[in-house]
Design a protein around this nucleic acid. Structure first.
Length: 288
DNA sequence: AACCAGGAGGAAT
DNA sequence: ATTCCTCATGGT
């Protein structure tokens, strides 16, 4: 058993983070006690750490605990990345206070971009969530993880691509995947398992290179590639204009009578560069 | 019951 | 290179 305290630059609102994570029924967290269990793989071995908030928005501190002391350094680095503790939200907040999004940024002050707990899981989740309402989308990802993943230290960890690569379409159709979606998930997992697609290699590429690489894969369009850049790599300047949630948020913000066109969205979003990811994130929050 | 959902592929331009 | 049409499966 090990324990470590971490101080983070304000503002950082972990309670908002927990509210958001709670939408995913697979994540084991406790809002009152302000902690969440975070599972991840180290060399194909599952590890779980608990992240507990002990501070405030303007003085954020966290206590991280785990069971395997030899994993401590890797775990600290990992959770710092997942929760984006090194990103200076203060600068981003100050920037958006001078834009049309000021009210939303005041309302959601200190909301960070929190990454999915694993890039492969992120990619599968994006594919599964394509064109589905959030309720059913999370139903499907939950079935995916609880059927093929593993329960460890009181929480669920997603399956490895090698396992999904061996499934048949029928296996996923039992969980109410559409046939097409099942193919996308299995075939992409096969690419990864075969070493033809290495997600870790995308880390060093530019946004455009990552999109070009991923869009070549059947089942991965621009929206999915952009979401991967956002929630797997934490890139700061993505604005998925095909996203229905962002479209609805723009519609609400500017009081439009119908959903904005792509052209309108590009126009509105210009002042939000180079922090388009944060504009996207806060727009999503504004309609939840 | 009809329309929608945090899209993608493929055909037709 | 861009636009339009179809698809798949529940939710509301």
């Amino acid at each position: 058993m090990w324990e470590k305290t971490v101080h983070v630059q304000p503002p950082y609102n972990f309670d908002r983070v927990l509210d958001r994570l709670a939408i995913n029924p697979l994540i084991n967290l406790n809002k009152d006690e302000r902690w969440v269990k975070v599972p991840f793989y180290v060399k194909n071995e599952p590890v779980v750490v608990t992240v507990k908030a002990t501070g405030t928005i303007d003085s954020p501190t966290f206590v991280i605990t785990g069971s395997q002391r030899e994993m401590m350094e890797q775990a600290l680095q990992y959770v710092s990345h997942i929760f984006q503790w090194e990103v200076p939200l203060k600068d981003i907040q100050d920037y958006f206070l001078l834009t049309d999004l000021q009210d939303i940024f005041i309302e959601h002050r200190g909301t960070p971009l929190v990454l999915d707990f694993d890039p492969y899981y992120c990619l599968m989740k994006c594919i599964i969530h394509q064109q589905l309402n959030m309720t059913f989308a999370y139903t499907l990802t939950s079935r995916f993880v609880t059927t093929f993943g593993q329960e460890i230290e009181g929480t669920w960890i997603h399956p490895r691509p090698e396992k999904i690569a061996q499934l048949s379409v029928a296996d996923l159709r039992e969980l109410q995947f559409s046939g097409r979606k099942a193919e996308y998930v299995i075939d992409t997992s096969k690419l990864i398992a075969a070493g033809e697609l290495t997600l870790a290699d995308l880390q060093s590429k530019t946004d455009e290179e990552v999109i070009d690489t991923l869009v070549k894969i059947r089942g991965i369009g621009k929206w999915t590639a952009q979401n991967f850049l956002l929630f797997a790599l934490g890139r700061p300047n993505l604005f998925p204009i095909a996203d229905i949630g962002i479209q609805n948020a723009i519609k609400k913000l500017y009081n439009l009578d119908k959903k904005p066109t792509y052209e309108q969205m590009e126009e509105y979003s210009k002042p939000w560069e180079p922090y388009l990811s944060y504009a996207s994130l806060y727009l999503w929050r504004s309609i939840e």
